[in-house]
Amino acid sequence: MPTCCCQNNAVDDRQKALQRALSKYQNTKGALIPLLQEAQEIYGYLPGEVMQYLSKELKIPFSKVYGVATFYAQFHLQPRGRNVIRVCTGTACHVKGAGGILQSIQESLGIKSGETTADLRYTLETVACLGACGLAPAMMVNNDTYGRLTPAETLQVLKQYK
């Protein structure tokens, strides 16, 4: 089990949560991806030690766990911001000015797509399509979707997320 030098309760709780997840998927075929999803939910990202631990418990080569984790866009191997901004750059949003939305966020936060602000407040990403094409241009912040955005509105929305 991965341990951390600070050994505080939060770490303990996370370990317990991971073990609970593991027991839930015991003897289930194809458990790797759901477990990585749960692990990421618990830790906020996928630390190397956690993947190594899952590899041992599931008896799957560590290299394969790493291969799966790096294949899917959902998984992150680095810590993430508290609020994840996902700007849609799908076809409809593209033709309706998603580029300008993205640029205004990048300029205002000083980070590029795929990066996290130094204070871990925001992580900025682009997604291929949110499926909200009728509301283009659109973005998601955490689980909230916002549509028909202008650059100015976008920045207003972001301010709500501390």
Binding site: G48, P61, F62, S63, K64, Y66, G67, T70, F71
Partner: peptide, 28 residues
Amino acid sequence: GDGVIDFAHRGFNTKISTAMDLPLSKSE
């Protein structure tokens, strides 16, 4: 029977890699 290396990342960035992309000398 070791599975020390596998495909990592995807598309043009696909790379044959050890776990955590360490050099072979630091892998199993």
